[in-house]
Each structure stands twice: as structure tokens, then as C-alpha cells.
Amino acid sequence: MNLIVISLITLGLIGCISAVVLYLASQKFKVEEDPRIDEVESVLPGANCGGCGKPGCRNFAVACVAADSLDNLYCPVGGSSIMTKVGEILGLAAVENDPLVAVVRCNGTCEHRPKTSHYDGARSCQIMHNLYAGETGCMYGCLGCGDCVEVCTFDAIHMNPETGLPEVDEEKCTSCGACVKACPKNIIELRKKGPKGRRIFVSCVNKDKGGIARKACAVACIGCSKCEKECAFDAITINNNLAYIDYDKCRLCRKCVVVCPTNAIHEVNFPARKTAEVKPTETLNA
């Protein structure tokens, strides 16, 4: 009995002394933290995807609070609505950015781009890229090992087993840019989602001369500059035998899609064309 009492008193005393020491220490070494950091963090999506360039949402909140203006800080996942909320908390003007979406700029499916070799190494695009040009004749196109799928934290990109190409789920894509960084061939680009999700882009990154590109892939951009001439808004530029559509200038008239002889220009989420036009492409492709 005595023993129990003694132990209780000793332990109680040790507990009390430790509590006092801990209290004093916590007062002495207290870190003053801006309460706004917690507030900002609470409105952020909390995905810790790194799309903003910071290691996580907390670090982004710290950076926002420390910054004088929000010009260089943008959370692509939350978009403009979240950034407005952050701006309200901090009393700063938030940047308005149009929502973006990841776009895979390669259409080299198995039938368009026949295989010329067989790769039997580790299934990783990065490893394959370090070794050689890839399994097909096109050294610019998708390697198909799915590094982009692996890095996506939002389950928004998947390999289509039939085409062997990744496909982006527009609903889930938050434009964090992880896939853009993971792709060793720089095929994936963040483009404006566009009104009603409508957008037009060149689905090819092949910089070879027309003949070589066409030989490797049936739907390659051959740099013929027909689209450049057709475009009334100067939105299309040709560099290194490759067309690129500037999404800020593009008015979505879809004229370039029709003139492209190799069907390299893609339109997304447009309603079907009213008149059944015969594309000149089909005769050329034959």
C-alpha cells in the first residue's frame, strides 16, 4: 500500500514539474505565426500536387502571405475562384487566369504509326527515352509506357490500350502540370480549356521534314503551312516543320482543321458539322 502511495506521489511530482518546465519553455520559444497562413491553407484544395511550384499547399499559403502581390502565385487546381478567396483574405488582387487542361499532342496510334522495333526494357518512358528514339519511326512521339499516368495524383490520365496513347479525363484534370514535367518527349501541353471546353490544337510534335515525318506516321504534321495560310487571325505559326496554334489568338473557326492534309489538327467538344463536307484529306490520304 505504502509503495503505491510513494510511487503515485513521485510520479505526480515529476508530472507537475515537467508540466511547469514545458509551459515555460513553450512560452519562451513561442513562434509567432501569421494566423492568415492557416486561413489561406483552409481555402486551398489541399491536394499537395505541387502544381503551383511549391512543395505543398501549406508552403503555397506561406508564400502567399509573405508576398506583396499575387501576380506570380497561382493555384492551377483551385483556379481563379480559389485565388479570389485567397486575395480576399490577404486584401490583395488575385490574378484571373482561364482554366487550363492537359492536352496530349500525339496521335500516333498503332495503325497510324507502325512499330519498327520492340522494346523489352523497364516500362518507363524516361528510361526508354534515355536509351533510344522509341519503338516507332517517329523520335518525337509518345513512347507509351505511361510515365504521365503514374505521376497523376488526380487519376485524370489513362492509357488507352487500343491506341497505346494516354487520354486525359477533362473532368478530373486540374492542370497541375505533373504530366507535362514527367513526359520526356514534351508531348503534353497545358492549353486553355476554351469556351464550353472547345479547343483546337495540332496533335503532333514531329519536327522532321514533311517526307520523313509522313513516312513514320500517317497523321504527322508535315509543316505544309496550309493551315497558316488559311488562318485569318495569325494564330498559326510554323517552326521547324511543325505548326503551332496560339490559343490566345485562335477564334475556333475550324478552317485549319479542314485544310490539314494529314488530319493532324484536332477539334475537341465541337458539335457535328452541319453540312457533310467531303474533307480534301481523304483523297490525299488514299
Binding site: 526494357g121 523497364a122 518507363s124 524516361q126 528510361i127 534515355n130
Partner: peptide, 13 residues
Amino acid sequence: RPLLDYVRLGKNT
């Protein structure tokens, strides 16, 4: 295991 493939990737990076 594809040891060399990944080790080479690591070495390059």
C-alpha cells in the same frame, strides 16, 4: 529485376 535500367536512369538524372 530491371536493375540496370533504373540505376542508369538515376545516374543520368
